[in-house]
């Protein structure tokens, strides 16, 4: 407080004069010197680490380039993508069924779906994968017919459940358990008024589900399901354990022969990164498309 100010001036008057003086002066942003300095330091350290890592002789970028578009690697990519798409497709269909069972009025259906989710969330993915790969030990023959009655068609289990299909079943069935919980939560998030309005318009329960409830639930479910799809893409590399020639397995076969472990793991990493980026990009556009009412576009 300035003592030279007129002492008889009332307090409020002094404040007003002070505010007028300050208000006329320029306003400056706050000083973030420490924060800015920290940002620069972190950037420098990170750059140093990345540059140093990239220039390590063991990385051998020439080998990376040589194998990046190698036909064997391309086959691996094809299998990885097929595994992801087929497993996720199986999971999506099954999870919608499971979620509806969990929300059913029938206690038996609820219990069956509950046990399924419990069971498939309990088994480690790798165990499930190896189990399916060895399913022929438990069920050597697959037959189509009436139980204890005539048999129309039968075959050796190994002919049907190859390593690839064992992987699809393992990934798909486990993913269904997780995805069904996402779908269930999304269905529960839709207000009951939506069902009532649809019912009052004469829609059957099935029509209400597919036309009214499910489209709204998917808007909620897309971000977590995209997350799971990205996870699944990378988790399919576990299929290398049962010799499914996916991306990781193909680079392994190459480095087992050439001993260029690090460059070939880099090849796999680059491709996984590319596809995860594409999935994220797809997720962004899918979310926009589903939330067409929220993006303010009136077409």
């Amino acid at each position: 407080m300035n003592d030279s100010a007129a002492p008889d001036l009332p307090q409020a008057e002094r404040w007003r004069a002070e505010a007028a003086r300050l208000g006329a002066s320029p306003h400056h942003p706050p000083n973030h010197a420490v924060r800015n300095a920290l940002a620069v330091v972190i950037l420098l350290v990170a750059t140093a680490v990345v540059v140093d890592f990239a220039r390590r002789p063991a990385l051998d970028w020439e080998v990376v380039w040589k194998y990046l578009f190698d036909p064997t690697v391309m086959t691996g990519i094809r299998n990885t993508l097929l595994l992801t798409v087929l497993s996720m497709a199986l999971a999506l269909v099954l999870s919608v069924v499971l979620a509806n069972m969990r929300l059913s009025g029938n206690p038996l259906l609820r219990a069956i779906a509950g046990v399924y989710v419990w069971l498939f969330r309990s088994i480690p993915l790798l165990v499930l994968l190896i189990l399916w790969f060895n399913i022929a030990i438990i069920y050597p023959r697959i037959a189509l017919g009436i139980p204890f009655g005539p048999e129309w068609w039968a075959t050796d289990t190994r002919n049907v459940v190859s390593g690839f299909w064992a992987a699809v079943l393992a990934f798909g069935l486990q993913q269904a358990a997780y995805t069904s919980e996402i779908i269930r939560a999304s269905l529960l998030a839709i207000p009951t008024g939506q069902r009532e309005a649809a019912a009052a318009l004469g829609m059957t329960k099935v029509r209400t589900f597919f036309r009214i409830i499910f489209p709204q639930a998917m808007r909620i479910a897309v971000p977590p399901i995209s997350n799971d799809t990205i996870n699944l893409l990378k988790a399919t590399s576990l299929a290398a354990f049962i010799a499914v020639p996916d991306l990781l397995y193909t680079v392994q076969t190459i480095y087992n022969r050439t001993y260029q472990i690090i460059p070939l793991l880099l090849v796999a990493t680059i491709w996984y990164t590319v596809f995860v980026s594409l999935l994220s990009y797809g997720q962004y556009h899918l979310e926009r498309a589903l939330r067409r009412d929220r993006v303010g576009r009136i077409s």
């Binding site: 008024g193 309005a197 009052a200 004469g202 709204q216 589903l290 067409r292 009412d293």
Partner: peptide, 17 residues
């Protein structure tokens, strides 16, 4: 049967999508 009776709700219940 329900097609024969229209209903208007307190909370409108329009389909937001």
């Amino acid at each position: 049967q329900r097609q024969r009776l229209g209903m208007v709700f307190q909370q409108f219940n329009l389909f937001p999508h």
